[in-house]
Design a protein around this nucleic acid. Sequence first.
DNA 1: ATGGTAGGGGGCCTA
Length: 257
Amino acid sequence: MRIATFNVNSVRARLPNLLEWLGSAAPDVVLLQEIKCQDEQFPALELEAAGYHVAVHGQKSYNGVAILSRAAIEDVRRGLPGAESEGDEQARYIEATIGGIRVASLYLPNGNPAPGEKFDYKLRWMRRLIDHARTLLATQTPFVLGGDYNVCPTDADVYDPVNWQNDALCRPESRALFRELCHLGLTEAFRALHPEPGRYTFWDYQGGAWQRGQGLRIDHLLLSPQAADRLVACDIDKEPRSREKASDHTPIWVELS
DNA sequence: ATGGTAGGGGGCCTA
């Protein structure tokens, strides 16, 4: 089973590109972020016509996550635990079961500027994610937490680490919580299979970042032990970023046996 | 020091 994650930066603006990529890459499951629309605006008919079931957790204007799957989607959860008590109304998390695997599409807060309220929200959100991952691990079932983490785990994941060291994506606090999440027993699939630095999933629209190769690796797939046992391959698909009307992110995928 | 780009929505905010 091939599971991909793709921050599309508006699913409606990206629909032609997304449909073309689905046709060529043919993933079994796609975790979408930044769909930037409400549930009723999600292009479900077009994606169902392409052969996918859909589960959506949308929001007006900002954020929004979704799951596409060739097989049936069951037991959908929308939002991280603690959303109510935190007063968190941002649509950044959706989780469901597909073929016996629990999959989540997450859009972690950017957190800039740091320090500040937005950075505090990012760190709180990461702690909630860690708590939830602990709960999922206790089930001892295979699961995949994929999405836009808005964290460059190490300097090898940044084109210019010195200039980015105080950015919320690279700050020590962000990296420490990302490590804490991994150290619960999760496998960061790309880095587990690819030691080389300079492999990115995001290139800013500004300043010709794509053409200059100035990227960041911020989209990740974290596997539970039972999923990691089935890890066959993982890679970044750079092709969609080269297109006209591209998202500023490109997909990354894992193949599980 | 500034503005560079893209998207949504509505006359700025987020990234």
